[in-house]
Simulated assay, not measured.
Amino acid sequence: MFYAILAYHVEDELLSWTPEQDAAVVAKVIEVQAPLRASGHLGPAARLDDTKKARTLRGPGAGMVLDGPFAETKEQLLGFHLVEYDTDEEAIAAARKLREVNPTAVYEIRPVKLYVPSDGFGATKG
């Protein structure tokens, strides 16, 4: 089963970090990712750009493009990790490892129903 580990954070807090603080958190996240990738469990991971650059497409027909994500939450979706595990518990354990090095983030773990493999990740399972 594929799981998306969605990373939420208070964006203003993250944007207030100095480049050194940001680099330190990223380095710790990469350390957590390394064994997940080596074991074949980690697929693509990305940090999303500022939400002020986001656009939302909604409405009937071709839809209307609106500025922003229009989230009604304190935290915004700022990144994700795509992982492959047999059980929910294993995916949750991976999210816990990520949270250990980025404790102010909120991680949502969601099964992925439709998946198109990339770079060989998931090519033999699913």
Score class of each variant (00 low, 15 high):
M1W: 01
F2V: 06
F2T: 02
A4L: 05
L6R: 01
A7K: 04
A7Y: 00
Y8N: 13
H9L: 14
H9K: 12
H9G: 06
V10I: 13
V10G: 03
V10H: 05
E11F: 01
D12F: 10
E13C: 12
E13D: 14
L14M: 14
L14T: 13
S16H: 08
W17T: 15
T18A: 08
P19Q: 08
P19W: 09
Q21C: 11
D22S: 10
A23Y: 01
A24W: 03
A24M: 08
V25A: 12
K28A: 15
K28Q: 14
V29E: 10
Q33H: 15
A34Y: 01
P35E: 03
P35R: 04
L36D: 06
L36I: 13
R37H: 09
R37A: 14
A38C: 06
H41K: 13
P44D: 04
P44G: 11
A45D: 07
A46N: 07
A46M: 14
R47H: 03
L48I: 02
D49N: 05
D49E: 09
D49I: 05
K52M: 03
A54S: 08
R55G: 11
L57R: 07
R58H: 06
R58G: 08
R58Q: 10
P60A: 14
A62Y: 06
M64F: 10
M64S: 15
P69F: 09
P69A: 15
F70W: 15
E72N: 09
K74C: 08
E75N: 08
L78H: 07
L78D: 02
G79V: 01
L82F: 04
V83T: 05
E84D: 06
Y85K: 05
D86Q: 10
T87M: 07
D88W: 07
D88L: 15
D88R: 13
A91D: 03
I92C: 06
A94I: 00
A94W: 00
A94D: 00
A95K: 04
K97Y: 01
L98H: 03
R99S: 10
R99D: 01
R99E: 02
E100P: 00
N102H: 05
N102I: 03
N102M: 11
E108F: 00
I109H: 01
R110L: 12
P111G: 04
K113S: 10
Y115V: 12
V116M: 14
F121Q: 02
F121V: 11
G122R: 01
G122T: 04
T124F: 06
T124A: 12
K125G: 12
K125D: 08
G126C: 09
